[in-house]
């Protein structure tokens, strides 16, 4: 089965074609970063307008590159939520009506299910069941995944998401958006022994996270070392980035290990933008090897938003027989635990 996937939940327009026999055939992504950067955040109306302009050119490109046309596309998947409602509406309206015109089934996909399944696009995919750590700009969740559609939230952030924490720390350190990769880069030149940041909520049982305290700690550390121009010197900045990253990564690792022990599972999947973080990957591999567990993640470009993960998730759901009606679905808030489950 060959499925066209469309992602427009936030500020990237992603389109891809996935084939259940031949794998990922083509994918294209247009990032609106430049559009929003001058506002210091995503402007929803601008995002929606840009999706409208970019979606058909991306479709044309991906269909061409994958050697596909209406004759061999068997279904269309689009991100139905969660996300910005106006942005979701664009991909949903185009995806649903294109499927109608082509007389193929359509399916609305949960964005975080897309992220969660992205590592399945790699050569050595994880097998169900597993524990997933979803770490993105808007989410930090530990999820027990029995199979596609059967999710149990083991823990989540009570305040900021991990990616959000990276982005806020970046702002304080005068780095550009998106902050995660920038903080990680600066941290490489930092001395990990200079500062020690707290590991929030690791001293008590449970699998919830809290990252807002780290934000305050970062701010205070910067304030305590302020130089003439209002910021600490370059080495201190790098040392702070390093301590911040260490604290986030360490916290995530502790909770992942705990989640594996609690569930008795031996497979961890990390997904979402922060799963691109090299230190996180490396530490998880080290620490989980000790308890005989393996860690799986997607290639860098499929950690952040993309169409490939939606095409993949859509293909699995369509193969299992899921069919949407003719409504365009756009669900801005949509708990992962409220997904359609599929027959085994």
């Amino acid at each position: 089965m060959r499925v066209l996937g469309i992602e427009t939940s936030c500020d990237e327009t992603g389109v891809a074609v996935y084939d259940s026999d031949r794998g990922l055939l083509a994918h294209a992504l247009y990032s609106q970063m430049a559009v929003h950067s001058e506002y210091g955040g995503v402007v929803p109306e601008l995002a929606s307008r840009d999706h409208v302009r970019k979606i058909l050119p991306l479709l044309t490109r991906v269909l061409h590159e994958s050697g596909s046309s209406r004759q061999n596309i068997d279904g269309i998947a689009y991100t139905a939520g969660p996300g910005l409602v106006g942005a979701l509406m664009v991909g949903g309206a185009v995806g649903r009506s294109l499927a109608y015109a082509w007389q193929v089934p359509a399916v609305g996909i949960h964005h975080m299910e897309g992220h969660l399944l992205a590592p399945m696009l790699e050569d050595n995919p994880p097998a169900f069941p597993f524990v997933a750590l979803l770490v993105s700009g808007g989410h930090t969740q530990l999820v027990e995944v029995e199979t596609i559609g059967r999710y149990k939230i083991l823990g989540e952030s009570v305040d900021d998401a991990a990616g959000e924490a990276f982005d806020k720390a970046a702002k304080m350190l005068d780095l550009d958006y998106p902050g995660g990769p920038q903080v990680a880069m600066l941290a490489e030149r930092g001395d990990p022994s200079r500062f020690r940041f707290p590991r929030p909520m690791t001293d008590r049982p449970g699998l919830d996270f809290s990252f807002s305290g780290l934000k305050t700690f970062t701010l205070n550390t910067i304030a305590a070392h302020r130089g003439e121009d209002g910021l600490p010197d370059n080495q201190t900045m790098a040392d702070i980035a390093c301590a911040f990253q260490e604290a986030v990564v360490d916290t995530l690792v502790i909770k992942c290990r705990r989640a594996l022990e609690l569930t008795g599972l031996k497979t961890l999947v990390i997904a979402g933008g922060v799963s691109a973080n090299s230190l996180l990957r490396q530490r998880l591999e080290e620490k989980l090897a000790k308890i005989g567990a393996g860690v799986f993640y997607a290639r860098h470009e499929f950690c952040t938003d993309n169409g490939a993960m939606i095409a993949y998730a859509g293909c699995q759901r369509l193969l299992a027989g899921q069919r949407d009606d003719l409504a365009v679905r756009a669900i801005p808030r949509w708990p992962l635990t409220e997904l359609e489950t599929m027959e085994a």
Partner: peptide, 19 residues
């Protein structure tokens, strides 16, 4: 309505492009 216009145009894009 911005959203209304985009729903209509999105559906038009899908149908017209598809056919």
């Amino acid at each position: 309505s911005f959203t209304g216009l985009r729903i209509g145009f999105g559906v038009v894009q899908g149908l017209a492009y598809g056919a």
